[in-house]
Each structure stands twice: as C-alpha cells, then as structure tokens.
Design a protein around this nucleic acid. Structure first.
Lengths: 336, 336
DNA sequence: AAATAATATCGAACCGGTTCGATAAACTTA
DNA sequence: TAAGTTTATCGAACCGGTTCGATATTATTT
C-alpha cells in the first residue's frame, strides 16, 4: 500500500538499516491508518526472540491469603507492557518431578527469560540455570548459584523494627519465624539477632527461649504456636518481632486469647505490610515491602539480561520502610 | 531420523489422517528419545490457532488484599495446562481509553479467546465482543450482551445466610453493600431482599433504614461506615449481612469499636470466604465461593467456545456454601 | 479379475515476518 | 572524471511447522 517491499516495512518497523525519511513517513502513515500490527508468531519464527517472559510461582504462593506475589506479578506485568513483552505464567507444586513437571514454556523455547517469584524447588532452578536460560529470582536465592535476583532489604527492616522498640525502652524482645529454608525468613531472623547484638542485647537474641523457628511454611498457626511457646519460657516478654505479617496475625490472635494486652503488655511487629495488616486489631506495625516495585525491577533486570547475556550477575536490594501502627505503640487518640 | 517426511510427523503429532501403526510408533519413539517439542511460533504461523488465551483483570482487583481473583487465575492456569494452552495476562485500569489502552494481545491476534475476571470497563467488553473474539466473563456480566459467563450463585448464598439467621430466631437483619454496579453485589442484595420477603420479613428488607449501599468500590471503610449508618437508625439491629468479606471485616471492626458484642448483640455474615475470613475476631461466618473452580470452568468454557464458536451462549452457575463460624453463632467452647 | 475404495506417504505451497546479498542511485574523494 | 562510499530499496531465502493434492499401495466390492 505504501508502494514498498516488505523488507522496507520491516526496516521501518525495527528502525534499523537505511530508509529515507520520505519512505519512512509514508510507511508509518499506512501502518497508523490501518492499525497494522506485525504478527508475533511470524516475528518469533523469523527472529530468535519470542518477546515473552515466563513467570514461575508456586501454586501455594499464588493462592495465599496475602496478595504478596500477585503484586509482584502486577509489577512485572506493568513493566512488561512498557516493553511490549508478554508474560506467560506457570505455577509449580513444591514436590515436582524433573523433567516431567517443568513449566512447558521452557521446553518449547517460548520465552526469552524467566522470572521466578518466591521459593520454588531448588532443583527446578538448578535445571533451568543449567540450560542457560536468563533467570531473575525475586524474593528468593540459592546460595551456590550465581543468579540475578531482586530481594528486599530484610536485615535493615528488622534493624529498624528493633530500634523502634528499643527506643521505647524495651529490651525483652522475642522473634517468631517459620520456614527457615526461605532466605528472606533467615535474613530477617539474622537481622533481628544482629540488631539486638549491636544494642548490647545479644544475650537475649541468642537465647533460644526468646525465639521460635520451624521449618514448615509460615501460617497463622505458626504465630499462635510460636508466641505461646515463647511466653511459656519468658513470662515477661515485652515485644515480639515476626518473620512476616501472617505470623504476626497469629501472635495477635493468641495474645488476645491469652488476655494479654497489645501493645500494653506485649508489642507486636510484622513484616511485609500485606493489605490486611492495617485492619487487624490492633492495626499491625510492620515493615513495608514495595512489592509492585520488586516486580518492575525484576522485569527490567531480566530484559537487560536477555539483551546482554554476557554481563555479570547482580543482586538488587530493595529498600524497605517501617510502618508504625497500633500494635507497637500505646494508643493516645481513640483509634490512632 | 525416523525416515519419514515432516508431513508424516505432523500427522502423527496431530493424530489426524492416515498413518500406519508401524510408522506412528517409530516417529513417536524419536520424539520421545529426543524430547522433541514443536515450536509454537511455527505452529501458530501455519495454523490459525495461537494456543494462547488472554486473561484480563483490572489492576485494582489483582492487587486487592484478598486473593480472590488470583485464585481464579490459578484455576484458569491449572486447566490451561491440561490443554497445553498458555495464559497471557493483562491488567487494565478502570478508566481506559478505547482503543489506546486495549490489551495488546487482542490487537496482534495473539490469543484465541479471552477470559475477563471481575468487573472491567464495559466499553472494553463491548469493543472486544464486537470484534468477535470468544470471551468468557467470570464474576461479571453485562445485561444487554449475550456473553458466556461463570458466576457464583449469589442469590442462593444469601438465602442460606438469611435462613441461618432466621433459624436462630433473628429477624432484624440488615445489609451492608458497596459498588452496586457490580452484578454480584447487586444479586447478593436482591438475594437478601428475596429471602427476607419469603420469610415474611419483607417490610424489614425493603426499609432503607436496614440497608446501606454505595456506588464506590467496596473497602473495609465501606463496612465501617455502613454498619454505623444502619445502627444510627436501627439501634436494635440483630444481624448484618455483607456484600463481601471485606465489608464484613469493616463491620466487625466498627462493632468492636462501638463496644457491641459479636455475635452476642449483632451477628455478622460475609460473602466470598477469602482466606483471612477464618482469622478475624471472631472468625467470620461467610458464604464460601469456590474460586479456583470458577477459573477452571471458565477455561473449559472458553476452549469449548473456541472449538465450536457457533454454539449458543451459556451461563454457568457455580454453587456456593455457607460456612458457619463464630461471628454468627454463640460460642460454646472456648474458641469454637 | 477388474473396478473401486481405503490406507499410507510425500512433495510443495504457504503462514508473515526478518535478514542477507545484490543492485542502483546519490555523494565523496582522489 | 573515474573510483570508491554511503544511502536506499528490493528480491529471495529462510524460520519450522500445517495442509492440500498427488501418487502408490493395499483392501474391498462386484
């Protein structure tokens, strides 16, 4: 329609090679007028790019009560849209078999790279990494593999929480965690111990009476059991830091059941700032994690990696922020 | 490698046409041995199917606190996997411009059909419907368009809730809702009125003092404001039914603040059974909606529609179930 | 036994782009 | 002004499948 060959149109589309301004404008006009969009499958077949990225998440995480990973997905989608890239999602179970249950898109080369959000079976990551597919991990990492990752600053977050409590003159601070195999949870626990150490309270943070850890997935139950266990040994506990908001919610419920006033007798601090954190009773003090932004960053990193595969691996540390609500400070108004 | 032409391999793959058992086995063996997977882009280009389905959801819904729509997405993914189909997700804002902000995959024919989850701008649905793309709506519908949909049985759910309360000898039952433009919310309100009517309590359900509706998106705040408004007019309210669990949570918070005992003075019933409904204080009686299943059904319907576009449109009504927890019945044990 | 139908396989066109090499025109440079 | 460059465009091969018609073989019917 513009009186040129398809090759020329292709050049206009990609912006490569030599095209006279005159021709370029003429072609562009036809494209605009007819709302022409190149067929992706044809492009994919001809070039070696698919323009898709895979998003892998465990089915547990996707359907968890908090929209934590959904928001990471949202961020990834927003950024992908900017680059005209599609996201193919795939859930995996935690007990998958390799290679039977490998996400399909990795088999038929339907993606240029993969984002893995949250913890998934390590052997899956190993398998994909060995196959030289660009990967970015979000809120996850595997010690011995050099894979790009986006993680929140768990240690600083915990440090801020500890400081917030110590500033109020509180010292007998415990910790309730869960799935210790998840790097974020481990880092949070370490952050707690480190910050306590620095404040001269190392003998408390190192005392197992003051913390509760377990290896299973964190649930509300974890919080209930955890705080109950600690209180049995430490009757005058003043505050508890939790590995995440889910656990913190469990602590709140259990403390309420035991008739302990929050924040009067025991203060509670969570981590993640999931949406319902603001509507617990009392509202939960917690460390805000910018989930959407993490998804955005992951996509950026991945696209970058796809573009320049040779560059070394990197880890992006996303800053977090302590949000102070009613569970850690005495109420002065009626609602705070 | 099997000593046959590519055409024959194609026939083996698709199971169409004539292939001798001998040849079929030989080809299949090579496929298995070499883990051969046909390249999707080549298939897409050659046939007119993409093997992808689009999943459209408003960005608000995807990042809401409850994992409601994420679970629908999960269900869709699980079923899609069974059919070796990919899901391309796209979020849309509620104030999009047509055709500028139309999800990309609809423009470049990258999907065979579309699932729309929850409410999105009506003009978007109209636009897509006019373009003759197979569509299935989940938890949404538009009165004047004949589009396949999967919806939960809102009226029956509300009826079960009303009956549950009436069985306890309660009559002064109110309703707190929100975004009335959402069909599910409207149906729930209608279900409430209808069930009350049938029980001879129509004069209550028709009395505006007993219900609170607004046009904005439902939030916790909606619940707080709603229950407060009703209590001002109906001081001896015995129970409140809510349009969803989010609103119900708001009611719980507000009742707690006002010093009203739940369920002693006022009983509260929600709708949806989102994950955190079990951990409110007290745990929330609510109507369970099988979200994952809705996603599964939607995918099934869509693939069916793609296969046989001519068949008439249908609506699949998914049954719901009342889950009785502490917010609507007196506690007899310590925790119930 | 001949005619017809069913089975089995393949060659070649095609899907809609990208990209390389060829060709030609317009500029530079010696 | 001839030779060499840069700019502009295009033809044709190619990506890896699907599908239609042609052809050959085998089975069935009359």
């Amino acid at each position: 329609m513009a009186g040129v060959s398809t090759s020329t149109v292709s050049l206009v589309l990609s912006g490569k090679g030599y095209v006279s301004d005159d021709t370029r404008e003429r072609v562009q006009k036809v494209i605009d007028d007819y709302n022409y969009r190149p067929l992706r499958s044809a492009r994919q077949l001809a070039s070696d790019r698919t323009g898709n990225i895979g998003f892998i998440i465990s089915d547990i995480h996707l359907s968890k009560s908090e929209a934590f990973y959904s928001r990471i997905l949202l961020g990834a989608e927003l950024e992908a849209r900017n680059h005209d890239v599609y996201i193919l999602i795939s859930t995996v179970g935690m007990n998958i078999e390799i290679p039977k249950d490998i996400p399909r898109f990795t088999q038929s080369r339907d993606v240029d790279g993969i984002i893995i959000a949250g913890s998934v079976p390590k052997k899956l990551v190993r398998y994909l990494h060995n196959r030289d597919i660009p990967i970015v991990l979000v809120d996850f990492n595997i010690e011995d593999l050099k894979i790009d990752s986006v993680i929140m600053d768990n240690r600083s977050g915990m440090k801020a929480a500890v400081t917030h409590l110590i500033d109020q003159g509180i010292e007998r601070i415990g910790f309730v965690g869960g799935s210790y195999h998840h790097p974020s949870i481990r880092e949070r626990f370490e952050g707690y111990q480190l910050a306590m150490e620095r404040a001269g309270l190392g003998q408390i943070a190192r005392n197992p009476d003051f913390y509760y850890l377990e290896d299973s997935e964190t649930t509300v139950e974890t919080g209930k059991v955890g705080i109950a266990a600690i209180l049995k040994k430490v009757t005058d506990l003043q505050a508890v830091l939790c590995a995440n908001d889910t656990t913190a919610t469990g602590c709140l419920l259990q403390l309420n059941k035991l008739g302990k006033d929050v924040p009067g007798e025991v203060k509670v601090v969570g981590f993640d700032d999931v949406n319902y954190a603001a509507i617990t009773q009392p509202p939960l003090t917690t460390v805000h994690v910018p989930k959407v932004r993490m998804g955005v960053e992951a996509t950026k990193m991945l696209l970058d990696k796809i573009e320049k595969p040779e560059q070394g691996y990197q880890t992006r540390l996303i800053p977090v922020e302590l949000i102070i609500r009613g569970s850690s400070v005495p109420v002065n108004g009626q609602d705070r």
